[in-house]
Design a protein around this nucleic acid. Structure first.
Lengths: 195, 195
DNA sequence: GAATTATGAATGAATG
DNA sequence: CATTCATTCATAATTC
């Protein structure tokens, strides 16, 4: 039950670049969504323009590019990709058979690998997760020599009482909205913003 | 193509607490605005045959099996996926700080959420479990200072925005939309609000 | 440079 | 509650 302070050396309350990246994305995404929705609405119903207070400071306060505010470009770096050195080390550690690295071990590895390129503990964690899952999936295929085999699995899922609930329902709220909503509701958001 | 490796991990580029606060607000605001815009749009355009005149989901999202597996995949999506509305509600409940919901509370929540899509109590239970565990992992929370300050400092509902980050990844395909905006865009938006 | 593959990341559920 | 597993999604990398 020991609580580890991970790398607790960051001074005070600041964000890492990674965190900034996430926030940047979120803001940009929301801005774009709002923009698109406004345009869509206007194009479908030639009626009151909604664009009044809807799109505040997209590039205003926090413009990482410093470039044109009309461009929604954000974020150049997305997904971590291990350098070859990092990969080698990871593979060798994995081959050591030390099973699942615990939190402390993860931290060690991350620290070591950070010598060879940018990396976070989460990256390491994910890498091992994926590595394990993948190697597990590859193995059972070799043993199935009998023609029957086909694809297996799928059996364990039936029990859940969820039923279907596919991805389609995500459109539900779009296609079948609740009817009672007025423009004033939207406008009231505006002042929530200025607090 | 060479990519430089910036070993100097957190060199520069950090945000002050104040700036974080602003960003949080922005994100929260955008979240609300988007939601309201969707609802508003739908209520205003409910006479438009949105779902009939135009071929929906041409926006490309809903093709999980098109290119990958040409075989069966009778589907029955196995795992529950919260709708955007459900997610928002869950998040807001989570943010209320009412710690671990007991059985009764879970039941209430499940009932409420079932208005917005298929859901079971188990789903709700799992969601809270995961939410708690992952927010703990995601926010290393410096723990630098003495005792207080940290956790109680953040006052209101904007705290939620930091932990999320999840489904908002795939924004790129709508960053530069074609001038003639169609329903496809809205649908594709719905996609990653849901994911 | 579009299509395909490989893989990092997110997350619902299971296990202890 | 802490970890782990299984599945899926998005995208970097690769192929044609």
């Amino acid at each position: 039950m020991d609580r580890e302070i991970q790398n607790g050396a960051y001074s005070g309350r600041v964000m890492t670049e990674e965190q900034m990246e996430i926030l940047r994305k979120q803001i940009a995404v929301y801005a774009v969504i709002c923009d698109q929705l406004v345009l869509l609405h206007n194009s479908l119903s030639s009626y009151h323009p909604l664009s009044s207070g809807v799109r505040p400071m997209v590039g205003g306060y926090f413009d990482p590019m410093g470039a044109s505010s009309s461009s929604h470009r954000i974020s150049t770096r997305h997904r971590w990709t291990p350098t070859s050195t990092q990969l080698q080390i990871l593979e060798s550690i994995y081959d050591e058979g030390s099973g699942t690295p615990n939190r402390r071990r993860i931290r060690e590895i991350a620290t070591e690998l950070s010598e060879h390129g940018q990396i976070t503990e989460t990256n390491v964690y994910n890498w091992f997760q994926n590595r394990r899952a993948r190697s597990k999936r590859k193995q059972p295929q070799t043993t199935t020599a009998n023609g029957q085999a086909d694809d297996v699995a799928v059996t364990t899922e039936e029990r859940r009482s969820c039923g279907d609930s596919g991805g389609l329902e995500s459109y539900e709220h779009i296609l079948f909205p609740s009817p009672d909503l007025g423009i004033e509701h939207l406008l009231s958001i505006g002042k929530f913003m200025e607090t």
